[in-house]
Amino acid sequence: MSVATISRAASGPARVIPGFGLALGYTLLYLGLIVLVPLSAVLLKTATMTWDAFWSVISSERVLASYRLSFGAALIGAVLNVVFGGIVAWVLVRYRFAGKKIVDALVDLPFALPTAVAGIALTALYSSNGWIGRYLEPLGIKVAFTPLGVVVALTFIGLPFVVRTVQPVLEEAERELEEAAASLGANRLQTFAKVIFPTILPALLTGFALSFARATGEYGSVIFIAGNMPMVSEITPLFIVTRLEQYDYAGATAIAVVMLAASFVMLLTINLLQAWTRKRGREEKA
């Protein structure tokens, strides 16, 4: 009945809309059953391990190598997405060209395309006889079945994030400010550096963080193209799956805790960045 008391306390005297107790009660029940109780299993399982056992699992050579690859490749992918995603967002908002509507719609493809499909498609393209791989191979660049392949897959799945966070900010940006800068004698590059870039910076960083966060946990698109060699091209989520397949539940869970802690830090960062983006937006309008 505590839900009903909150409802009366919170809704104030004139509130006529019904259903608060039912809606919030159902929300909390469903959230608890589907998300919170299952996730707490990870922590409870870890609590059964001794600290030494936990530490030796999460700091073994092979796991450290997998962190380096997962986080390193996610970082490179996110940087690539900031640079090229920023350009794509700019081009889509500011310029007109043939096929723009279709290009705009297809930017979301990595959100909609199942990761396994992306994985086998990228592998087919970048393997030595693939459409792209056959031109890179003579140059001595091997992509499929190397860490470079992991970067390609993680760039693909993170691609929409930067575009979709920067795009609305550019659309809302006041063109009058740029005109003012120009009329005060700034050239286009100065206007970009001093007026436009500061406006879109929070959105660029948010997009970077979202893309990075998504990429660190990615599994489906990577395992096909990575080659999955321990110490070389084995990502952390794959290592968790390997542990599970050997019925080493404790080991799998210990590494999952490390990844969950990392996601939690990224989630906090993203929330702060989004708050900053919104604040920027309000300042612009004020």
């Binding site: 946990g217 599994y219 968790i240 599970l244």
Partner: peptide, 14 residues
């Protein structure tokens, strides 16, 4: 924000 692999793992643990 949870890796898909961990989303599966939790049900294995339960």
């Amino acid at each position: 924000s949870v890796s898909p692999v961990i989303s599966g793992l939790i049900y294995v643990l339960i």
